[in-house]
């Protein structure tokens, strides 16, 4: 399982990533021992709730966390380069050429004082030696690529002049300006309306297939993951608790947390019964419980779960789940969904 990560066709490989935030109070372990890899043309979804470490692990890839308060451990390789060993100058060349990023709120990612066209052209000219006219031509093509209607006119628009969906498309165009090998997407569709969200997801999937990009897509929405992901990593309290193909994870979850997430997501449940919610709330990252972090909320937890962090148990069909009772729970149930007590 873990041996695969070192293969060379990965555009990004992360091994035993640790991220610790230092603050006035106790240090918070935001990410612990996270490993994953993404190949060209592959979409990995990192699913988790707030505080699960999903955004932090992704920001660590681009070293976007405040350096004075964060300690990053482990190995991150992007496009063959050791990210943690790069100088600031080398890093900024990697950002925007090999990797780009899109965010939840495009207004904070786009510069309000430049037009969309200027921002795309500037991105191109910073990384490639092309003339101004050529960069502008490329900007126009990019707007066409992300299906912005009447692109010539939109090039001259400022971000605030666009609607939410168009702004998100413009941000994608900016991110794609230098044909990145890897696109990092941090909940880019969460703030959008349903009818617009589906348009952006379909667009991203198409662009990804056409351009052969890898995408790491962070989301809390299982439906979004089902729509776009090849592989899924489920994070809880800073660790990947389950990893596998989207189909396996979403249809046949093996980790009690993944099962709980699926059960508590409202999608056509009988309205005469309570939704099967996970009791309690996620742990404080400054004082994680010993052993499995999910044990205090888990209905299958045993004494042994609180003793040591569960290792990766291989799932049938690839991937793993960090649960010492993985095979047992499935065996008992005979079905992936736990029976209501």
């Amino acid at each position: 399982m873990t041996g695969m990560i070192t293969q060379t066709d990965d555009i990004v490989s992360v091994r035993s990533l640790d991220v610790v935030f230092h603050s006035r109070q106790a240090p918070a372990k935001a990410v612990s021992d996270v490993s994953f890899a993404v190949k060209r043309g592959e979409v990995l979804c990192i699913i988790g709730e707030s505080g699960s470490g999903k955004s932090v692990s992704m920001r660590a890839l681009m070293r976007l966390l405040p350096a004075d308060r964060t300690k990053i451990g482990g190995h991150i390789t992007v496009d063959g380069q050791d990210v943690l060993a790069l100088s600031e100058g080398q890093l900024s060349r990697v950002r925007g050429s090999s990797i780009s990023m899109i965010f939840q709120e495009p207004m904070t990612a786009l510069d309000p004082v430049y037009t969309i066209g200027e921002q795309i052209a500037e991105g191109i000219r910073r990384h490639e030696k092309v003339s101004r006219a050529e960069a502008n031509q490329r900007a126009l093509e990019l707007l066409e690529l992300v299906r912005i209607p009447s692109p010539e006119r939109r090039l001259k628009n400022y971000p605030h002049e666009l609607s939410g969906g168009l702004r998100q498309r413009a941000m994608i165009a900016v991110a794609l300006a230098c044909r990145p090998a890897l696109l990092l997407a941090d909940e880019p569709t969460t703030a959008l309306d349903a009818t617009v969200q589906i348009q952006v997801l379909i667009l991203l999937k198409k662009l990804q297939l056409d351009m052969g990009m890898g995408i790491i897509f962070v989301t809390h929405d299982l439906g979004v993951a089902a729509q776009i992901a090849d592989d899924v990593a489920v994070m809880y309290a800073g660790r990947i608790v389950e990893y596998g193909s989207a189909r396996d994870i979403l249809l046949h979850p093996r980790h009690p947390y993944t099962m709980g997430m699926l059960a508590s997501t409202v999608h056509g449940q009988d309205r005469h019964r309570d939704i099967e919610a996970i009791p309690g709330s996620p742990p404080d990252l400054r004082s994680l419980p010993p052993g499995c972090s999910f044990a205090p909320r888990c209905k299958y937890a045993l004494e042994a779960c609180t003793k040591a962090v569960p290792p990766e148990f291989a799932r049938p069909g690839g991937g793993y789940a960090r649960c010492i009772r993985m095979t047992e729970i499935v065996h008992q149930m005979g079905a992936p969904q736990p029976v209501h007590a």
Binding site: G165, T195, I198, I202, G223, A226, A229, A246, R247, L251
Partner: peptide, 25 residues
Amino acid sequence: QALLASQLSMDPAERVTEAPLAGDP
């Protein structure tokens, strides 16, 4: 009808391939 068709399924096999509506409200 469009709103309902924009709902995402939890099953990767039931992906929406064509957006039911174009553009923003």
